[in-house]
Each structure stands twice: as structure tokens, then as C-alpha cells.
Nucleic acid binder design. Structure first.
Lengths: 224, 224
DNA sequence: CTAGTTTGTGAAATATTTTTAAAGTTTTTA
DNA sequence: TAAAAACTTTAAAAATATTTCACAAACTAG
């Protein structure tokens, strides 16, 4: 299946232009003619939309509002289409998670180049899988496999394991783990980490030994 | 140590401007006034340069040539500084691995925002290793290697060794060691240090002799 | 050279930390 | 809303680390 891009712009001409150029590179394009429609469509097709081209100036709901709403639930890459000379807005946008700006008028070739660059860096391979020593973590599916066999993990177990694997080779103090895997304001017994570690080790079977106990500190994930 | 950025531009004014803004965010800046100088400096300081801001239009060797040469040996992130209206060049640059374009004149705030965004996504983490005479201390992993072989150290042993190595060549009195490695309010026998020294020496094997006894004072770590 | 002082060493005594299992809680799900 | 699943807490057991001690060895000053 092709990569799908949502194009949001109030001008019919602009939408068609973008669609044509993207189609040449084999992208599927969905169009929305204003912010409201964009949100509706995104709601419905969140799973297949891999990137959004979003005009800033639109009737009903402008680009910034759409951006803000989408960012509450999704990290889909977004390229903003701006008129020249809107720099102060750019800064504002970066904080909200804009990936790129392209100012109108633009050359369609550049647009396509940037789209490809962004897709490349955000979707290195359709679904990212981390793998160390026979332990696979599929981020998009939130699943863990040990030697190819799926192992069920609860939320905390998954997040704790992933946090350790993301920081492979690094000794993680208990308080750091609490801050990163639990809410920063979690106020409870740090022994609770140990309980989860025990369960994860058990589920990993033999490979549970990759979780090293750092006595007096916390834990560390390490293949060896 | 701070993150170091190489700024390449032929205009003195521009270099100073960039330097000032980056310095505010605690980056160290190295300047180069043309492409040739840039390559020389990069050659020499490849290890510490974490990002390059590269002007396109320069005498002697322009930005594109510098980019191409650097890309043969390094993936360091590069931001190109272009004059407006050089769109066709942009396309060309993406293929060569340009990470970002910023067109002059730009708001310094945006520049800093982009620099931070790029560094964040390309340098997720770094781990520091101290090494003297075949003794390696990996701080992030809290591990010690002797001649490449991991040696298990307990908390106190690790911290005591690290304290001495951090103060290589300095004679450390017992009371200073207690204050720095033990809790400041430790109330116990200072002979405890001796016990740990003994164990560390033993674990370091032949290299245990790098821990010198300073009679009547304390201990000292020294390669010799 | 020798008495006095300081450091090295091994083992015992303490202390601390982690593991484990099981019992409460809370949250989610059907 | 009852049952199931997930999460947290607890407490005893196990593992490991730290401290102390007693004596031997090494060093230093006189």
C-alpha cells in the first residue's frame, strides 16, 4: 500500500497542484478544504495518514488550531505551508511540533524533496523494531518477542522494559526510572520497580539475565 | 563539556552574530571564514564538532563543495545558510544529506530552535569513559574494565576508585575521602577505607599498584 | 636497632539491599 | 457492575556489601 498524505488547503488550485506532484511519486493523497474537514478526516483515517501538509491561512479553523488539536493525540509529521514573512509564527510552531515550513510560492520539486526527507527520517522503516540479543520490541505494535515468540507484557512492564532497552548499557537509578516510566509526580514505594523487574525477568525467561541489578543504584539492561 | 558547533561564513559580522546567540544557549563555537579553513578545522576537530552551520556563498570553496567533502567521511548534521531564492539548490542539497536550510536573513531565535531540534534528534545520548593505564571507568554503565575485561565492583569500591581516578596524581587524605565517597555524616572507623582499598587493589590485579599508599596521609592514584 | 605508629589482611559480625511471594488496591474490561 | 487484570505494598528470606576486629607486616623516628 502507498504512503498516504493529507493535504489541507482552502484553494482548490493548490490542492490539485500538490496532489499531482505527490501522485507522480506514488503517494496517495487525501484532500481537505478547511480545518474542520481536516480534523474529521484525520480522526477517521489516523492510521493510514503518514504526513500532513497544512496551510496556515484557512477559513473556519486555521492551520495552527488544527496543528494543536492533532498534536494532542498524534505525532504524525506536519509540514506547514506559510506565506512569506511569518517568522515569529515559525518559532511558535516548532514548540508545537511542526516538522518543517515551506513558504508559498514554492517549487513543487522542493516540496516533494522535503516530504521524502521527512518521511525518511520519521518512518525509517514502516514499523520500528528494536532488537537486542533475541529480545524484540515492536514499538508500533507495543509487543515484545523473545526468540520470535510473543510475550505478553502489561503497560508498566512494557514501558519499563522499553525504557531500559532504550538506555542499553546505562545504569539507571531508581529515581530516574520512576521519573521516566511512572509519572514524574508518582509518590510511592520505589520497591514497586523491583516487583515489575521480577515479572519482566520471569517473562523473558533465560534472557531475564540481561537485566542486571546495580546494587545500591537500580538496574541496567545489557547483553552479555 | 559543552556541545561544539562549527560556524562557517565569510562575513565576520554573521559569525559573531551566530556565535553570540549560540553562546547564550551554552554551545561552544568554532569559526571558519571560508570553505578551506572549514575543512581544515573539521579534519582536526572531527570528534568534538557536533553540528555545522554552513554558508553557501563563500570565496575559495563554496558551501556545496565543503558539504560534499565532509559527507565522504562524516554524518555530522549540517545546516545550510542560503540567500533567499536559491530553491533549485535546495533540492540538490537534500540528496547530499543536508539536514536543514535556513535562509538569510533569519531570526536568530529560529536558528537556535532548529539547531536544538536537530541536535536532539541526532545525539540522543553520549557516554563518557575515563581511561588510564588500562583501567577504564564507564560512568554511564558504572562498570570498570581492566585490560578490556569487566571487573565487578561494589558501590563503595566503584565510587572510591572513581574518586581517586578523578583526582589522579593527588594525595588524598583519609578525611577527604570519607567526606567525598561516604556520606558527609558518616560516623565510623576510617580504617574502613583500607579494607576497600585492599579489595580494589586485588580486583585490579597487577594494576593495583597504581593505588599508592601515602603513609600518614591516605592514598593516591597514579600511573607509573 | 627498636619502640611506636601506621597500614595490610582475612575473617567475623553487622548492616543493607534485593528477591520473592503473597496480599491488598486500583483500574480496566466485558 | 462484577470479574479479571494490572499495579502497589508489605514482609520475610536470601543475597550481598560494609564495617569492625585482631593480628601481622611495614615503615619511621630517634
Amino acid at each position: 500500500m502507498n504512503t498516504t498524505i493529507l493535504v489541507v488547503d482552502d484553494e482548490q488550485r493548490m490542492r490539485t497542484l500538490l496532489k499531482d506532484f505527490l501522485a507522480q511519486k506514488d503517494y496517495s493523497v487525501i484532500e481537505a478544504k478547511d480545518g474542520e474537514e481536516a480534523l474529521e478526516i484525520f480522526q477517521e483515517k489516523q492510521d493510514i495518514i503518514k504526513l500532513i501538509l497544512l496551510d496556515v491561512m484557512m477559513p473556519k479553523l486555521d492551520g495552527w488550531s488544527v496543528l494543536r488539536q492533532i498534536r494532542q493525540t498524534s505525532k504524525v509529521p506536519i509540514i506547514m505551508l506559510t506565506a512569506r514573512g511569518e517568522e515569529q509564527d515559525e518559532l511558535f510552531g516548532f514548540e508545537l511540533g511542526v516538522d518543517e515550513y515551506i513558504s508559498k510560492p514554492f517549487s513543487p520539486k522542493i516540496l516533494v524533496a522535503r516530504v521524502e526527507a521527512i518521511l525518511k527520517r520519521t518512518n525509517p522503516k514502516t514499523n520500528k523494531v528494536i532488537e537486542y540479543g533475541g529480545i524484540e520490541i515492536d514499538e508500533s505494535g507495543r509487543t515484545v518477542k523473545v526468540d520470535g515468540k510473543v510475550v505478553e507484557m502489561s503497560l508498566r512492564e512494557y514501558e519499563l522494559l522499553k525504557y531500559m532497552v532504550d538506555n542499553i548499557g546505562i545504569a539507571l537509578p531508581r529515581d530516574k526510572i520512576l521519573n521516566n516510566v511512572w509519572n514524574y509526580d508518582y509518590y510511592g514505594d520505589s520497591r514497586t520497580i523491583d516487583s515489575h523487574i521480577k515479572k519482566i525477568r520471569h517473562k523473558l525467561g533465560k534472557k531475564g539475565k540481561y537485566i542486571k541489578t546495580m546494587r545500591g543504584i537500580g538496574y541496567k539492561f545489557e547483553i552479555k
